[in-house]
């Protein structure tokens, strides 16, 4: 199994370390040809405007869209923003997942926070702990989801922070900044075996 990590800007090394610790082969993706022969892709956190601009300037944007229509892709924070439905706001979205997402929805950096998040879908990966130590950095919020989207975690009644639609996974927080690899293992389970 080979998993790509979009390495245009942001916290791609953290994802790479997580996957390597799980014994998974990784590939940093900076150009379209790096997408060849990958079984899945992670779009990391970073600045979504920067990542989108670099993807467009180097002709990667449409190839990411095509890749995401056929393969498992997980977006964390900025990555989740890119996966969302195109709503004409900045930055341009890949428009592959039926979610609407609002940037910096919790406020500025002084409002960034950590919280133990209830994520029932992770239960089978560790029977004893029903919560996940989530780190939210100037995080966006998923404020609307389509019918095919499964909500994996939310804060209160209205703030959706993790969602899945078939082979696409979006989290607005950063499992790669923790020592907890359950979300990475959850994503690896989404990769079809050859």
């Amino acid at each position: 199994m080979r998993i790509g990590i979009l390495a245009l800007q942001g916290a791609f090394i953290e994802h790479e370390k997580m996957l390597k610790n799980l014994g998974v082969e990784t590939q940093q993706v900076r150009l379209s040809q790096h997408l060849n022969d990958l079984d899945g892709l992670i779009i990391p956190g970073g600045e979504s405007t920067t990542i989108a601009k670099l993807a467009i300037d180097f002709g990667l944007f449409d190839d990411l869209k095509t890749f995401a229509s056929e393969h498992p892709v997980w977006g964390t924070c900025a990555g989740a923003i890119l996966l969302a439905k195109d709503d004409q706001s900045n930055p341009p979205r890949l428009d592959v997942m039926d979610i609407h997402i609002v940037r910096n929805a919790f406020g500025r950096q002084v409002d960034s926070f950590q919280a133990d998040l209830l994520v029932p879908s992770l239960a089978h990966l560790n029977g004893s702990n029903p919560t996940f130590p989530a780190v939210f950095i100037r995080a966006p919020i998923i404020n609307a989801v389509g019918k095919k989207v499964e909500i994996l975690a939310q804060i209160g009644f209205d703030k959706i922070v993790a969602a899945r639609q078939g082979h696409l996974l979006a989290t607005v927080f950063h499992p790669e900044l923790t020592n907890d690899d359950r979300f990475h293992r959850y994503f690896l389970e989404m990769i079809p075996s050859k």
């Binding site: 390495a7 942001g10 916290a11 791609f12 924070c77 002084v110 960034s112 926070f113 950590q114 950095i137």
Partner: peptide, 19 residues
Amino acid sequence: ETTGTFAVKKGLAQMLKGG
């Protein structure tokens, strides 16, 4: 929800990497 932790402060810098 705990704000202002070192992980959160350091975390933003991690998001700026490669930039």
